[in-house]
């Protein structure tokens, strides 16, 4: 991973974007790294735009917001459109193939132009896991399988801290499903 990972999670309200970002950042801190997390959203609690910013760094984080992301998880087509140029700048883009139509992707996302834009059917996978709201955790699982930003074990622990035991299990299933998805895909060149 680069010295400082500037991650944007983008989706819509109700997808657990904010909480996913919080858990990722907590995992990073437990992993001995520095982290900052923030989120922005519209007035709607459900639906509408939602995004979370997570900075994870081995260094002190001076500016705690993401001005230029180097890693993006795009769950909606708007987010994909906004970030599709990212791989050309050296960033990593994971996107939801269910919403984001891309002409560039192959199976399991490995793009023909760059291995740094990967599409996965996150919505379908979350639905198949019986937990559509677990989509962000699933996508983070994929991210952690493809990169070494944070060790999966720390994420699992942080996830358990954020839910009651029964709900944690369903969400862990999503996360593990995402990990599997990522491990099957070709590792992007970092």
């Amino acid at each position: 991973m680069p010295e400082t990972c500037k991650i944007m999670l983008e989706g819509s309200g109700g997808q657990g974007i904010g909480l996913g970002g919080k858990i990722l950042a907590e995992a990073a801190v437990a992993n001995g790294l520095n982290a900052a997390q923030s989120q922005s959203y519209g007035a709607q609690a459900r639906g509408g735009f939602s995004s979370a910013e997570v900075i994870i760094s081995t260094q002190e984080i001076v500016f705690p917001l993401v001005d230029q992301p180097n890693t993006v998880i795009a769950l909606t087509s708007q987010s994909y459109e906004r970030n599709k140029g990212l791989p050309e700048k050296g960033g990593l883009l994971l996107y939801n193939t269910v919403n984001c139509r891309s002409s560039q992707t192959g199976i399991a996302g490995c793009s023909t132009i760059s291995t740094r834009a990967l599409g996965f059917p996150f919505s379908l996978e979350a639905q198949n896991a019986g937990n559509p709201k677990g989509i962000t955790l699933l996508a983070i699982g994929t991210l952690l399988a493809l990169t070494d930003i944070v060790k999966a074990g720390y994420f699992e622990e942080a996830l358990r801290d954020n839910f009651s035991p029964s709900i944690a299990e369903a969400n862990l299933d999503c996360f593990w499903q995402g990990l599997t998805l990522g491990r099957k895909a070709q590792k992007p060149c970092c």
Binding site: A25, A35, A36, Q37, S38, P64, L65
Partner: peptide, 9 residues
């Protein structure tokens, strides 16, 4: 508002 919702260690 930004500091209010920013999470840090």
């Amino acid at each position: 508002a930004t500091l209010a919702h920013l999470r840090e260690k």
